[in-house]
């Protein structure tokens, strides 16, 4: 599987609230950010924590503005996220 995203792409994080171990922090759920760079390929942590083999997929540094995460603040937060947590987003676009 080719990587789904490239640096500069706008992405929206999942809003899912899984019952299991996950590495998408709650504060970054359902938020729009921008891919900074690829950070390698690894089996999804959610799968490994449940004893599943876990398909290897791309992991990205994704940068969010504090305003987009929290509604205020002038800093940025970069979170490292598996491809499974991300969907394409158009930051200029309105409702999907």
């Amino acid at each position: 599987m080719p990587d789904r995203f490239a640096p500069g792409d706008a992405v929206r994080t999942s809003t899912a609230d899984p019952a299991w171990h996950t590495r998408l922090p709650r504060y970054a759920r359902g938020a729009i950010g921008r891919v900074v760079e690829l950070a390698g390929h690894h089996p999804l942590a959610d799968d490994r924590a449940r004893g599943l083999p876990g398909t290897t997929q791309a992991v990205y540094h994704v940068r969010f503005t504090a305003a987009d995460l929290f509604g205020d603040g002038d800093h940025a937060v970069t979170v490292e996220l598996w491809e499974d947590y991300l969907e394409p987003a158009d930051p200029q676009g309105g409702t999907p």
Partner: peptide, 11 residues
């Protein structure tokens, strides 16, 4: 167990 299972158990 693996590291992810360990983190899961803490959580």
């Amino acid at each position: 167990y693996n590291l992810d299972e360990f983190r899961d158990a803490i959580e």
